[in-house]
Design a protein around this nucleic acid. Sequence first.
DNA 1: ATTATAAAACTAATGGTATTAGTTTTAATC
DNA 2: GATTAAAACTAATACCATTAGTTTTATAAT
Lengths: 192, 192
Amino acid sequence: MPRIGLDLPNLVHAATELADTQGLEAVTLATLALKLNIRSPSLYNHVKGLPDLRRQLALSGLIQMSEQFKYALTGKSGDDAVRAFSYAYLTFARAHPGLYEAVQRAPEPDDKLLQKAGGEVVQMAVDALKGYGLEGDEAIHAVRGIRSLLHGFVSLERQGGFGISLNLDVTFEMLVHTYLEGLKAIRRKIEG
Amino acid sequence: MPRIGLDLPNLVHAATELADTQGLEAVTLATLALKLNIRSPSLYNHVKGLPDLRRQLALSGLIQMSEQFKYALTGKSGDDAVRAFSYAYLTFARAHPGLYEAVQRAPEPDDKLLQKAGGEVVQMAVDALKGYGLEGDEAIHAVRGIRSLLHGFVSLERQGGFGISLNLDVTFEMLVHTYLEGLKAIRRKIEG
DNA sequence: ATTATAAAACTAATGGTATTAGTTTTAATC
DNA sequence: GATTAAAACTAATACCATTAGTTTTATAAT
């Protein structure tokens, strides 16, 4: 019996385009309604409001990240796996700056769906560092570490935080390589 | 002949308190005017508008960072210097989350004052890595690296991106240590 | 084909925001 | 004590999210 008009996926898709081309700040109910040729109150038939729209963007971003990281990791192990994960991370953040930003600003601790989607992305990082000889707490610290440097680089690059003169891909390559060499060096020290 | 009322430093101080206690989003002309017991249009006697207020916050944050980093670095060199810089960075970000956020969102490429203040902070990172045997481009990449991991950690920690179970200070310590060990390991390889 | 239904669109209205224009107040100087 | 200019004010505008209530319309059942 229902009438079919817009659906949530289309709406999120349009919002994603806005976010990725003009920044997350540009995603308002007003601009989204304009893009979709409807009046902004009509959007409330699909989302609860602006915060809910932002949440949907974050969720969509996390799901896409999971898919792409899983694809990048298949068949890889050791250094190759970490490198593949790192480049997939960088590639996603560059291709979807608005979506990436939406993912960062979704810290609702009691949102189970969001927590689960985020957990799956983190699990990819854990998988990438598997077979590095890290156990227990050490593995958790190492995963936090790789996440920190990836997010930090991507975030500084996006906001133009680095000077322009020197190739950024080389910096990224060196950063990941240095961290991995550090992990290996520390393991050598411990194992004697 | 002028009449003396509010001045810019007081205004920025009040805005900083708002930002650090309630988040940068909470810094609006309305809330700031409320805190200062004036009407919001009166704020236009001191700042050009909300974007200008945010810029003043960013500028103030960068200046404070410079001062604190310089103090932390005096008399230190080698690993000690990098560690001191890193902890000063972490300490500032934890003490002034709103100000730190304001600094991140100030990417006006043609703002010379802001550029200069940011450049001074970056110079502190360069100084911290002095005497690490890095030359030319390699030094620039290494500085970008340490900035990435510091910002990434601080950013993820602030937004609750890490699970709660494991001590974050230990993660931070390990992250910096791993990166430094990586730099040393790579140098050993090159020098044979 | 007609009709009933319920989702999805709409209009109208409210309250909050930044911002501008123009006026009044007031502290410091002469 | 008069002058002055900054700093406060009020009033008004435009844009935003949001709510309430109404109308439209594609679907599903008759």
